[in-house]
Design a protein around this nucleic acid. Structure first.
Length: 483
RNA sequence: GGCGGCAUAGCCAAGUGGCUAAGGCAGAGGUCUGCAAAACCUUUAUUCCCCGGUUCGAGUCCGGGUGCCGCCUCCA
């Protein structure tokens, strides 16, 4: 089945045909490190984590680059407010960013370049643009001349003549056109700076503009033309539009084939953002919910749709996840089942095919999760009918394998055994002293044997308050953690 | 003002021309059970914001309207 992706550049879903199969190059705009990351950043990172995982599942050889912006106005401003060096601030939040990503189960990209480590590459592109006649220098600043790039606006569907530049900010009179944007900025005394050929007769000090680093670093690692470039919807204009102008004006070649943009996380129907102040940091949320719940919550909605962030929705996601874990546990418990109506291999293949069809359709994780729910229900049904535990393990394996493509069900588990014939898998991260629980369960069962229901119920209730669920089943008592 | 997106059950959310509109959560009834939980079964949208149109046939395409959101300024 062909993979289809929605391409912002054409406004359509297109069949994914890499430039040099099976190799695929993907560049994603990461974060500017001046503060903690919030759930919106998590969604962006997660979207491309899924795309990466699925491309690999499909057998592509992916090179994934995700940058970190460690020099810009916000960093300088925030550092000044705090009275600390700008690079100390950037370093600190880069560290925090790495921690957040790791906590969310989002692996590092193959390359995670920092802007300040690529000043030479950036200057090379700026010079190239000047040489090609697309950029001009004014008092140490270098601007891109938008009117020279005739296809400007093709990504965001804008016409330069329609844009009301300067409607909300003052236009720098030194620019030839209000739309022109900075490639290189001269530095004021005390600001971070690098030597440059621009400004003063013999060259001056300055720093890169915001957009140029992505053009420079993406092509540095992936070549002048590559397959996928991604980021949040808010980057379409001006950031990505400008990247295209810079890269194509410099190289003379098409820059990116597929542009992919993820939708926003909203709070009460409004975009979650730093400027509105309505954000929740990743750290805050991970105190309340396991990372897997956050991941599941985000993947229940297609990546391009807006998603409303709320406690209620997180709780819903948690319960849904619990459903899968219950199935895993129950199949474990049915270890000694017998063989009859097993799911055939071809039936399992049908689920795999449906899952792939969903993911092939522009990474439709919401639909794909629906397929996993179907398989879980099917498995529970077979379990009820006393089917083969062997074949049901195959079901669970498939759920875990496909869930793994979404980064779900990946936690390390250990097997815990009670008495002679009851055992189960426990998420090791959530592990509490299991011997103690086993002991309490034993005590409770003694109480039950004596029909001391009050005592038995009290133990169950107390354990539940600790996050441990007791269930009395025909085959014996089991316990599990709440998700 | 320009450009783009969204509107599907109590809530969340798939579906973008054709069998009875996925799935999850919540609710109701049932099976099981000391009780509870889990699981399973049944049930919850004659209908997809409104009005026109195209078509044998539209939630799905086209036109108009209403509401909401985003970008045009830093933003994932």
């Amino acid at each position: 089945m062909p993979l289809k992706v929605y391409n912002t550049l054409t406004g359509q879903k297109e069949e994914f045909k890499p430039l040099h199969p099976p190799k695929v190059g993907m560049y994603v705009c990461g974060v500017t490190v001046y503060d903690y990351c919030h759930v919106g950043h998590a969604r962006g990172a997660l979207t491309f984590d899924i795309i990466r995982r699925y491309l690999k599942y499909k057998g592509y050889e992916l090179t994934y680059v995700r940058n970190i912006t460690d020099i810009d106005d916000k960093i300088i401003q925030r550092a000044a407010e705090l009275g600390i060096p700008w690079d100390e601030l950037a370093g600190k939040y880069a560290e925090e960013y790495y921690k957040d990503m790791q906590a969310l189960g989002i692996a590092k990209a193959d390359y995670e370049p920092f802007a300040t480590k690529h000043i030479a590459d950036i200057q090379k592109v700026v010079q190239q643009l000047i040489d090609n006649g697309y950029a001009y220098e004014v008092e140490g600043d270098v601007y891109f001349e938008v009117r020279k790039f005739t296809t400007y606006g093709k990504l965001s569907g804008r016409n330069p003549d329609d844009m009301r530049s300067g409607a909300r900010i003052e236009v720098d009179q030194r620019k030839r056109d209000p739309l022109d944007f900075a490639l290189w900025k001269s530095s004021k005394p005390g600001e971070p700076s690098w030597d440059s050929p621009w400004g003063n007769p013999q060259g001056g000090k300055g720093r890169p503009g915001w957009h140029i680093e992505c053009s420079a670093m993406s092509t540095r690692y992936l070549g002048d033309s590559f397959d996928i470039h991604g980021g949040g919807k808010d980057l379409i204009f001006p950031h990505h539009e400008n990247e295209i102008a810079q890269a194509e004006a410099a190289s003379g070649k098409p820059f990116v084939k597929y542009w992919i943009h993820n939708g926003f996380v909203q709070v009460d129907q409004e975009k979650m953002s730093k400027s509105l102040g309505n954000f929740f940091t990743i750290k805050d949320i991970l105190v309340e919910y396991p990372a897997e719940v956050v991941r599941f919550f985000l993947l229940k909605t297609h990546y391009r749709s807006p998603i409303d962030f709320s406690d209620k929705h997180l709780e819903e996601a948690k319960r849904g996840l619990e459903r899968f874990y219950n199935t895993f546990h129950d199949v474990d418990l049915a270890f000694k089942g017998h063989v009859d109506k097993a799911l055939s291999i071809s039936e399992l293949d049908t689920y795999r095919e449906k899952f792939e069809a969903a993911m092939d359709d522009d990474f439709n994780t919401a639909l794909a999760i629906g397929v996993l729910f179907d398989l879980a229900r099917h498995t529970n049904r077979l379990l009820r009918d006393n089917d083969s535990s062997q074949s049901l393990f195959a079901n669970v394996e498939l759920i875990k394998e496909l869930g793994g493509v979404l980064g779900l069900f990946e936690q390390e588990v250990i097997r815990v055994t009670f008495g002679a014939n009851v055992s189960m898998s426990v998420n090791v991260k959530m592990l509490k002293p299991e011997e103690l629980v086993a002991l309490l369960v034993e005590d409770r069962n003694k109480a039950r044997a004596n029909k001391n229901w009050a005592s038995a119920d009290a133990i169950r209730k107390q354990l539940e308050e600790l996050g441990i669920i007791i269930e009395d089943r025909p085959e014996g008592t089991i316990w599990r953690f709440k998700v």
